[in-house]
């Protein structure tokens, strides 16, 4: 009886067979267009044509490639931190506003998200290039003699990536903050906590799930980020995704590109697992 009830409540109005038929196109697309090619690509890393760890060994033994991975992790961590530091106050503001002001701030967060990453990255080039707006302004103000090298530095990659990924940090935190009933903070204030104390002891801990979700999304997206670092970064700021694309499209070394992909994927999965542990811990709080 209980089993029947749960099965009807989860299966809803469709029988399992109908549900399968309805899902078939999606499953086919997923297998044909995602699992199969990704599987083929990853297999290439270890079968050439027989099983080998040659390509993997090349990736982890050469300091050149290890450095790229370390840099990728470092930039991803820095972007996550920066996005959190900039995003949390915005999310907090969004959750407190109402009416027209809330609409305006939400639009400021969402409109960039709907704009192509390519456009946003080119915007940074327009701003930062040798004869760009920033250099022009600096010279006009007399602050610098010649143009500064602003593009193709790690700092620029960091700033541009933070900008591009910021909405992915703001939205989950905003969601978590909105889900906290106003009565919790009122109760804290009523019980003698000032605005700051009540934020630290009540609002912040209750928004942890949103913080973890936002950090996870931004960190993982940064690990595999391609367009922005490729456009505003240079050879000294080479990141994993750009390296993989170089190996595949310029050097045509597909087995090595797939070995690098495998390592990136493995690293990402480890991060996901670790974050999920944090997430479940924070839920149990």
């Amino acid at each position: 009886m209980a089993a029947r009830m749960t099965s009807t409540s989860t299966a809803g109005i469709y029988s399992p067979a109908t549900a399968l038929v309805l899902l078939l196109p999606l499953i086919a697309l997923f297998c044909g267009a995602f699992l199969y090619p990704v599987g083929r690509l990853l297999a290439m890393a270890v079968f050439d044509p027989d099983f080998t760890v040659r390509h993997l060994a090349k990736a982890v033994e050469s300091p050149l490639y290890v450095n790229v991975f370390l840099r990728t992790a470092r930039i991803a961590a820095a972007v996550t931190l920066a996005a959190f530091a900039l995003g949390y106050p915005v999310a907090l503001l969004m959750s407190r506003l109402s009416g027209r002001a809330a609409l305006f701030v939400t639009a400021c967060v969402l409109v960039p998200l709907w704009t192509s990453v390519l456009v946003r990255s080119y915007a940074w080039i327009v701003l930062l290039q040798t004869n760009g707006l920033v250099n022009g302004l600096l010279r006009w103000l007399g602050l610098t003699e010649g143009p500064l090298k602003l593009l193709y530095t790690e700092a620029t990659v960091l700033v541009a990536m933070t900008h591009v990924l910021l909405p992915y940090m703001i939205l989950p935190i905003y969601g978590a903050l909105r889900a906290i009933p106003a009565d919790y903070e009122r109760a804290a204030r009523n019980l003698g906590a000032g605005a700051v104390t009540s934020f630290i002891t009540v609002t912040l801990p209750l928004s942890l799930p949103g913080i973890f979700a936002g950090c996870l999304i931004v960190f993982i997206l940064s690990l595999g980020f391609y367009i922005t670092p490729a456009l505003v970064g240079g050879p000294e700021t080479l990141m994993a995704a750009t390296l993989i694309s170089q190996q595949a499209t310029e050097l045509l070394d597909w087995p090595f590109a797939s070995a690098l992909s495998l390592l990136l994927l493995a690293g990402t999965l480890v991060v996901v697992v670790v974050f999920r542990r944090f997430l479940s811990l924070s839920k149990g709080l």
Binding site: A187, G192, G194
Partner: peptide
Amino acid sequence: RPEKRGLGMVFQR
């Protein structure tokens, strides 16, 4: 300010 009033309060939820 509410924290300076020293009142007790029980909320509906």
